[in-house]
């Protein structure tokens, strides 16, 4: 079961944070097709999120065709976003890990790495919006 983590001061609406966290979990393979998302009551019990916020996030995910709301039984993942490249054993990921270790050994801080990463990301994928200051990872 995924546990959402809401960053109250991030400036990003709570429902969008849930949407992003589901997307991220899908990319990382933590959620796969057929998995059931927690009910609004369960999310509220673990993270003190307004149930209507959770439902709004799920409606948004449904609009993105990532989940399906089955009346009376819950919200289910319909599509996976995981690609072979994001799996832990993929070569791309392994090389990025190596790169990170090297950067740390050369004395770069996490902020330096993030800045550099965002710059290179922007060059590689022109036209995407800059990421919000901090997207919580789980």
């Amino acid at each position: 079961m995924v546990v959402f983590r809401i960053e109250r001061r991030s400036g990003m609406p709570a429902y969008l944070q849930i949407v992003h966290q589901v997307e991220q979990a899908l990319r990382m393979g933590a959620l796969a097709e057929g998995d059931k998302l927690p009910t609004a009551a369960q999310v509220a019990a673990t993270t003190k999120v307004n149930p209507n916020t959770t439902l709004k996030a799920y409606r948004e995910l449904e609009r993105l065709e990532l989940v399906e709301v089955r009346q009376g039984s819950g919200t289910f993942i319909t599509r996976s976003l995981a690609t072979p490249q994001t799996a832990p054993e993929s070569p791309l990921r392994g090389r990025l890990g190596e790169w990170m270790r090297e950067a740390r050994e050369q004395g770069m801080t996490a902020d330096d790495v993030t800045t550099l990463f965002d710059t290179v990301l922007g060059e590689a994928y022109p036209g995407i919006a800059p990421r919000p200051a901090h997207v919580p990872a789980n």
């Binding site: 009910t39 609004a40 009551a41 369960q42 999310v43 509220a44 019990a45 673990t46 993270t47 003190k48 999120v49 307004n50 149930p51 959770t54």
Partner: peptide
């Protein structure tokens, strides 16, 4: 406060 807040929201959702 956190505990009661979660309780309130989850029971209300339920």
């Amino acid at each position: 406060r956190d505990e009661i807040g979660s309780l309130l929201l989850s029971e209300a959702a339920e």
